[in-house]
Computed example of a mutant assay.
Amino acid sequence: MSLVHAAHGRSDNTSAVHPTGESPAGGRRGFRQVAGAYAALAKPRVIELLLVTTIPAMFLAGREIPSPWLVLATLVGGTMAAGSANALNCVIDADIDKVMNRTKRRPLVRDSVPRRGALIFGLALGAASFAVLYLTVNLLAALLAIATILFYIFVYTLVLKRRTPQNVVWGGAAGCMPVVIGWAAVEGTVQWPAFVMFGVIFFWTPPHTWALAMKYREDYERAGVPMLPVVATPQHVAKQIVIYSWVMVGWTLLLAPATSWLYASFAALAGAWFLFYAHRLYSSVRRGVETKPMALFHRSNTYLMIVFCALAVDSAIGLPVLGLPF
């Protein structure tokens, strides 16, 4: 799984080799080449962002630093689940990846990995993720991981992605699940702060992805993927980015009752910083001047990291929570 398109814009650097095991020059592939090609299927850049959100969720669940072994087991199982979803996504979307400049260096496009091998790899990772989480964490975390894989593949990739410009809005729910899995790993249940963290990422995903899609609009159009920037005017897209950004920032403050003044302060300041750049993008589009949507895309990554790192630090320090106002 991914934060749907969390690390788009980075191409894979896997060297071109044939599924027979030979390179174009006729030489045999080494183990590192084969392993690198399969690792690229898992989209490790995307997984990095998942880890940024999972660990703070685990900190918040206990309002303390969780067991390092529990964190490690959750991250290993979660990484396998994400890698499974991403690999299976590569199998399904190979035709799209082939016509998009941004994705044409992925393993299946360059024949670095046979399609059957990629399918088996993705399914094996999914099964391994369930086993690891079930045996080392708990059943709930394992079931949530499998549900996330199934949602990403069957709901987002096969149904939403090619049919509606709302694809990343609803499909983005898959990228929100790591925080719920992290919470379940610690508590064995899912409580309201986990759903609030889910909402933060849910509302973060559209501004993040649409900023990227504004830059690569022609790629998506050529591939027949109806991303919002493909079917709507730049002004409408920028306005939607601003709206979702405001909701996202407001949503982060809903965690204040479960945290202290430290998190609330960072969330408010980081939110103001991100909103400034979201409004600046909208202003540039309205005035018809040069826009830099990728600047907002990269800042969205930084913003998410700041909010969740503040959440982890706040929980680790154990400052008194603000509590509910009633």
Results as ranks from 00 to 15, higher is better:
residue 7 A to H: 14
residue 45 R to Y: 11
residue 46 V to Y: 02
residue 198 F to W: 05
residue 22 E to H: 13
residue 226 P to V: 07
residue 287 R to E: 15
residue 124 A to V: 11
residue 216 Y to G: 07
residue 208 H to N: 06
residue 308 F to E: 01
residue 218 E to C: 08
residue 207 P to C: 01
residue 99 V to N: 06
residue 93 D to Y: 03
residue 115 R to A: 15
residue 46 V to F: 03
residue 142 A to I: 04
residue 67 S to L: 08
residue 16 A to Y: 14
residue 305 M to E: 14
residue 192 W to Y: 10
residue 298 H to A: 00
residue 111 D to S: 12
residue 21 G to R: 04
residue 208 H to V: 00
residue 7 A to N: 14
residue 245 S to E: 08
residue 310 A to F: 04
residue 85 A to L: 00
residue 208 H to Y: 06
residue 19 P to T: 08
residue 269 L to Q: 02
residue 320 P to A: 13
residue 213 A to D: 09
residue 16 A to H: 15
residue 28 R to Q: 12
residue 73 A to N: 11
residue 109 V to F: 06
residue 294 M to I: 13
residue 286 R to M: 02
residue 43 K to H: 15
residue 71 V to K: 07
residue 322 L to R: 14
residue 309 C to V: 04
residue 283 S to E: 14
residue 173 A to Y: 01
residue 260 S to Q: 13
residue 10 R to H: 15
residue 77 G to M: 05
residue 128 A to C: 10
residue 19 P to M: 07
residue 214 M to G: 08
residue 266 F to V: 13
residue 163 R to N: 15
residue 216 Y to I: 11
residue 67 S to I: 04
residue 192 W to K: 11
residue 278 A to M: 01
residue 172 G to D: 10
residue 69 W to Y: 15
residue 275 L to A: 05
residue 244 Y to Q: 08
residue 155 V to M: 09
residue 44 P to Y: 00
residue 35 A to Q: 13
residue 272 A to N: 07
residue 113 V to P: 07
residue 208 H to L: 03
residue 291 T to I: 15
residue 261 W to V: 12
residue 2 S to R: 06
residue 285 V to D: 04
residue 111 D to I: 01
residue 93 D to R: 02
residue 57 A to D: 00
residue 88 L to H: 04
residue 5 H to L: 10
residue 23 S to W: 07
residue 198 F to A: 01
residue 111 D to W: 10
residue 73 A to H: 14
residue 89 N to H: 12
residue 13 N to P: 06
residue 251 W to I: 05
residue 137 V to K: 00
residue 132 V to I: 09
residue 98 K to H: 15
residue 74 T to I: 08
residue 153 I to L: 14
residue 89 N to E: 12
residue 52 V to M: 03
residue 13 N to C: 03
residue 154 F to R: 06
residue 25 A to Q: 14
residue 105 R to Y: 14
residue 302 T to D: 06
residue 146 I to E: 10
residue 76 V to A: 06
residue 314 D to A: 08
residue 292 K to M: 13
residue 206 P to G: 02
